[in-house]
């Protein structure tokens, strides 16, 4: 079963976070005051229909986008006070990213892509940890390949390895299986879950796929820029059921 720490600390949290696009008449509220905590060593999925604000929430939490008001903490660091330089350093040292597509630099080999954040920071690669990660994602024989010589699933696994290898405080994954067939998707998802279970990594994943959400410890449901529900120990059926509710609400509105 789960090996969560007995007194869970917080890897990242948001307090009354709002994000508003545009001005006056054309303004769109993407986030309407979200307060949320992401527990360290937990695997959290964020779900919601299109336009619910789930991607915006993740971008704000991950120091890729600025909030209109409210606070975001990664570890103990409050993001709104930071300039570009500090934000860049924060992303480099404390956050890992897995995007839906175009995760890798085409001119670098798989190995170079994996160690990219460490190389940028000028930090040494922990050889033992690197080998552990590589063994876990099963890429030992693909390290010298360029991205265009790898399959989509392999590319996403390289992206996972890159996120893990710098041992960030939190990994944000944006629809990591969105572009994969179901078998490759399953591989990536179980790998992410293993990294939480075995290595105590914190992961926040945005997805619209109930099957993907089922791999997580906790699912947050967003609608119209607000967290409307959450679910622990999800299964695909329960998540699907809950999502249908949104569709019904959406149709009523």
């Amino acid at each position: 079963m789960t090996t969560q720490p007995s007194s869970p600390s917080t890897a990242a949290r948001a307090v009354d976070l709002t994000k508003i696009y545009g001005k006056d008449d054309t303004q769109v509220v993407a986030l309407g005051g979200v307060t949320v905590e992401f527990t360290a060593g937990a695997y959290t999925a964020i779900m919601g229909p299109s336009g619910s604000g789930k991607s915006t929430l993740m971008h704000c939490m991950a120091a890729l986008d600025s909030s209109t008001s409210g606070q975001v903490f990664v570890g103990d660091t409050e993001l709104s006070k930071l300039g570009d330089k500090e934000l860049t350093r924060l992303r480099r040292d404390k956050i890992g990213f897995i995007f839906q597509a175009f995760n890798l630099i085409p001119t670098l080999t798989a190995k170079e892509n994996i160690t990219l954040p460490l190389d940028i920071a000028g930090r040494d690669v922990d050889k033992e940890w690197f080998d552990t990660v590589i063994a876990t994602v099963g890429l030992a024989d693909r390290l010298s390949h360029k991205p265009n010589q790898l399959s989509g699933g392999q590319q996403q696994r390289v992206a996972c390895a890159r996120a893990l290898v710098s041992q960030p405080e939190i990994i944000f994954a944006d629809e990591p299986t969105g572009n994969l067939d179901s078998r490759s998707g399953t591989e990536v998802l179980s790998f992410l879950r293993r990294s939480v279970r075995e290595f105590g990594q914190t992961i926040v994943m945005v997805t619209h796929d109930p099957n993907a959400a089922a791999y997580s410890d906790r699912v947050l449901f967003l609608a119209d820029g607000l967290i409307v529900d959450e679910m622990t120990d999800p299964t695909a059926e329960k998540v699907l059921e809950r999502m249908k509710g949104f569709d019904a609400v959406g149709q009523q509105a």
Binding site: K85, D93, F99, I105
Partner: peptide
């Protein structure tokens, strides 16, 4: 996109 990715994973300006 490449530039975006590099910046996201921590490449400074």
């Amino acid at each position: 996109r490449e530039v975006g990715l590099l910046r996201a994973v921590g490449l400074s300006r």
